[in-house]
Nucleic acid binder design. Structure first.
Lengths: 356, 356
DNA sequence: CTGAAAGCGCTTACAG
DNA sequence: CTGAAAGCGCTTACAG
């Protein structure tokens, strides 16, 4: 039966275990923490008594006296975009490996993020990681000045002491531009998100800047969201142009829109990879599927997450990260805006000519 | 600069706020909790002092004395399958709305789940929700007997007092069988996961049982994982049969395999929806995309998550849920195995004939 | 190696 | 309406 509940006994405490093992309560603590001296056999006896009773130290109570719980607040949002789910998944895995416990704060939309950030502090976490929304500098300051860490993933930290790591969006955009130009493409278009999407805007900028260096420019199709449907809408705009006026080199600031673009072009007499080249961004799973085979950028997610965790570890030890050291020899750089940018990696498939 | 950290002052306490507002520390507590009498203007003064100092009650300390923190442990795993991400996303949203804080435990594989379940108790959460792996009945018992709740999502609770809600996998399988049979299909195949995948096995069973009632049977293609690649492998098995010996009604126990199956059949002279009908399960986003248009089952995720939250709320109030009441008039039923099964909904697209 | 005691930051009876 | 005090379940000096 899934019926009802068992209202168990009031939870056991270390005192109960002490009684059972015939020792002081302090020894029970030592048996579990490993701090302070304790005879091996006493410890054994205590562990057995605890197992018998089903007791484990109360982490909440412990944090009370140590003034520190291995808690990390994570701000996230709907996982409808695969990239978001990937980011969260990698973070969760890394936390688990580091014995850090993520406390998740879910924002239905970007506006809620600041409020959640405020709610965060009641939990006295070691710090917070923002993976959604825009960082309010004063909020970041409030968190940092309590001695908590503040990390932003794929967004600017907006604060001199915040930690921020992102893919090098501008570099990705520039790489896309150079690749398309080298293929001999000359009429360019960008399928972009809204201008207030930081990542999309930076990718677009990088694309346009590199094009400019090559003496070319591009039309930009902005979209309110960065979905499959937006990509299809962009395909309609593409098809609105008659044959030889159509762009022949298209960069989409994320994969979802690129896939929608491909869908919108099916059965329209346009051969992608031949008539027009297309490059996306994110390398989501579907981009490698048979009907798409999209050339795109893989974000160095492992690298970015590893850097966040190194920052957290350094913060815990009260040290500051020496970025000069930690970045040399890696594909990452610390920018003047305070963000660590990690180079994305192009994945060649069939929507460009130059598949290796 | 993203450099360094600010090692802030030792955190403020309610005592600091009390001092600033010139009241006792107890009043500060009352100002925030709303419990106990307090003059409106005193409260106002305290709130202002707290805002000035940047203090909020320490939830960890509060939980210490109340013996209850609004914490929920969630066991999850890699979010590589979109369905998993959807489940977690809905849970997180509902928790946020209920002021419940999810503490996430991440299992890299199913074997770790039992260990994580054990780790769970040190946090003294209200209970735990399992969304990955298999439930060990003794572990469930240990958790329930401490008075915590225990809920399993899309898996059996394996314990008389555990709460479990899932889609009606057998019903879905049976619906698929009846639909294909009604279309006039007569040679059936199931693209299934491993036999130890509870959901996949139940879907398969339901399909075979309904077929049996109609005097038909099916070949079952088991796959070690339920991925796109597994679906492609199944397509190869399909193509191994010569023309009129091929199955003409195929049921895949999840969408990923169904999509892979479609990909494996492209450019092979097989028209899905005409030569063969295909039905999936999950209704992931890609199933509605142009190249797929898969007929599939939508799982009643909102319904399932709402039921989990109702269970948590009832547990909190010390009441047991009256399922007889809560289920009447809904598309859900309490099965003899203690699981609440909610009916999936068919979504007709073009991989079957009978698209409405 | 072991134990008694103080104290982490709150909430909640209990007096006033 | 307000305050002093006890106590939640631990960890950690401090004695022994």
């Amino acid at each position: 039966m899934a019926r009802g509940k068992l209202s168990g006994p009031k939870g056991a405490t270390s005192r109960d275990v002490a009684r059972a093992a015939n020792v002081s309560q302090a020894l029970v603590s030592r048996a579990f923490s490993g701090n302070g001296r304790i005879a091996a056999d006493t410890r054994q006896r205590i562990l057995e008594a605890a197992a018998e009773i089903g007791w484990q130290p109360n982490a909440l109570a412990a944090s009370m006296v140590t003034g520190d719980a291995p808690l990390v607040a994570v701000i996230t949002t709907r996982l409808t975009f695969e990239w978001r789910a990937q980011v969260l998944s990698h973070l969760l895995k890394s936390f688990q490996e580091s014995d850090l416990k993520p406390l998740i704060f879910y924002a239905e939309n970007d506006d809620e993020v600041d409020r959640l950030l405020a709610d965060t502090i009641t939990w006295r976490t070691r710090g917070v990681i923002v993976t959604a929304g825009v960082v309010n500098p004063q909020r970041a300051d409030a968190i940092l000045s309590r001695g908590q860490f503040f990390a932003a993933l794929n967004r600017p930290g907006n604060h001199g002491h915040a930690f921020s790591v992102a893919t090098d969006n501008r570099l990705g955009g520039a790489m896309a531009a150079r690749l398309l130009h080298a293929e001999g493409r000359r009429r360019f278009a960008v399928i972009a998100g809204p201008d207030d999407s930081w990542a999309s805007a930076r990718r677009c900028e990088g694309f346009l800047a590199a094009l400019d260096e090559a003496g070319a420019d591009a039309v930009v199709w902005n979209n309110a969201d960065m979905s499959i449907e937006a990509g299809k809408a962009s395909a309609r705009r593409f098809l609105d142009h008659s044959g030889n006026l159509r762009p022949d080199g298209v960069f989409s600031t994320n994969d979802a829109m690129a896939l929608g673009f491909l869908d919108g072009l099916r059965d329209q007499g346009v051969t992608v990879g031949k008539d027009v080249s297309l490059i996306g961004y994110d390398n989501i799973a579907a981009s490698s599927w048979t009907p798409y085979q999209l050339t795109t950028f893989e974000q160095p997610l492992d690298e970015m997450v590893a850097r966040v965790l190194a920052y957290i570890a350094a913060h815990q030890e009260g040290k500051s990260l020496d970025f000069a050291d930690s970045l040399s020899g890696t594909p990452c750089r610390l920018d003047a805006d305070g963000v660590i940018y990690c180079a994305p990696k192009i994945v060649h498939r069939t929507t460009t000519r130059s598949h290796s």
